[in-house]
Amino acid sequence: MAQHQIASPLPGVFYRSPAPGEPPFVQVGATVTADQTVGLVEIMKQFTDVKAGADGVLAEFAVDDNAMLSPGDVVAIIETD
């Protein structure tokens, strides 16, 4: 099975949910579409959606919630057909 790595588009803090106390955008093992949001990156109070980028199943998150990211860091891995 092929894999697609979701990379951070910019530096900042990665969040798995839209707000504190809210459920995550997606859980490991869930089916995702290419345009589906899997998390957010926040830098200086601006939030950017992190999209899956490929259809498939979210296999794992490569970083923890609230982790600091650099541009290009792998956020998650999707198993594609």
Score class of each variant (00 low, 15 high):
8 S>M: 06
65 D>H: 09
43 I>Q: 13
18 P>A: 00
67 A>K: 02
35 D>R: 00
29 G>K: 03
34 A>N: 07
47 F>L: 11
23 P>M: 03
24 P>I: 01
36 Q>P: 08
70 S>P: 05
67 A>P: 05
71 P>K: 07
73 D>T: 00
59 A>E: 15
32 V>W: 03
63 V>S: 10
32 V>H: 08
60 E>G: 04
29 G>H: 13
71 P>G: 05
10 L>R: 05
20 P>M: 13
73 D>P: 00
43 I>H: 14
30 A>N: 07
28 V>S: 04
29 G>N: 07
36 Q>R: 08
57 V>F: 14
65 D>I: 04
9 P>T: 02
12 G>T: 09
70 S>Y: 13
14 F>M: 02
70 S>T: 15
45 K>D: 10
10 L>S: 14
65 D>N: 02
41 V>I: 14
47 F>D: 11
19 A>M: 14
36 Q>C: 08
60 E>Q: 14
19 A>F: 10
14 F>I: 14
42 E>K: 06
38 V>K: 01
41 V>Y: 14
70 S>F: 13
39 G>Y: 00
26 V>Y: 13
15 Y>Q: 01
24 P>G: 04
14 F>D: 07
31 T>C: 12
14 F>Q: 03
11 P>Y: 06
8 S>L: 08
73 D>F: 08
43 I>V: 14
15 Y>F: 15
37 T>Q: 10
21 G>S: 09
64 D>Y: 06
45 K>A: 10
48 T>A: 12
59 A>L: 09
9 P>F: 04
16 R>T: 13
59 A>I: 07
13 V>S: 08
26 V>P: 06
22 E>I: 01
9 P>Q: 06
64 D>C: 07
29 G>D: 09
18 P>R: 00
33 T>G: 08
56 G>R: 00
12 G>E: 09
8 S>K: 02
22 E>N: 04
63 V>N: 12
36 Q>I: 10
55 D>F: 07
33 T>C: 08
19 A>V: 04
61 F>C: 12
26 V>T: 04
37 T>A: 12
35 D>F: 09
64 D>Q: 07
32 V>N: 04
